[in-house]
Design a protein around this nucleic acid. Structure first.
Length: 147
DNA sequence: CTTCTCACA
DNA sequence: TGTGAGCA
């Protein structure tokens, strides 16, 4: 087997799409009854990977996260429909947040009582360095003037 | 022991 | 918005 083929195999093994959970696992993991999961799927809120007809349902990570969110918002007191909508909103926000973090966060520096997030410079002259600070008092931004 | 579907509230 | 029964 060629090296690229080997690499593809490893990549495929590590791919989140290949993290599959059985309905029982999901139920135990997230505290949602197997019956609920089938019901939610029947209502079209989630979907399972059902290649072999009539065989047991399997869920990928995407749907595991969906289920997690629905359960979460139901616990907060939302109806099933509202919980699904809340989950969809989070799922739309998440890639944007990820993109922001990937492109704007330069570094994360742990400290004794928390840490600080380096957001880089505010200006092109690179004189105002902005940090997001997490410490025992909470969260705040700090602008450090360089030279 | 698990998951499935169907009937029922 | 789900559950219990009863089958495979």
């Amino acid at each position: 087997m060629s090296e690229t083929k080997e690499f593809d195999k490893i990549k495929s093994l590590m791919s989140v799409d290949n993290l599959i959970f059985g309905i029982g696992q999901v139920s135990e993991l997230l505290g949602v009854s197997t019956r609920q999961l089938r019901y939610w799927e029947q209502q079209g809120y989630i979907e399972s990977l059902e290649s072999p007809k009539g065989s047991s349902r399997q869920f990928n990570l995407k749907n595991l996260i969906k289920i997690f969110h629905i359960k979460h918002f139901q616990n907060e007191g939302y109806t099933l429909q509202a919980a699904v909508k809340k989950g969809q909103k989070i799922e739309k926000q998440f890639p944007i947040l990820k993109d922001f973090l990937r492109n704007r966060v330069e570094d994360i520096i742990p400290t004794e009582d928390g840490g600080k997030v380096d957001f880089g410079f505010l200006d092109d002259d690179k004189t105002k360095h902005i940090y997001g600070v997490v410490d025992k008092d909470g969260y705040h931004f700090k602008i450090v003037k360089e030279k």
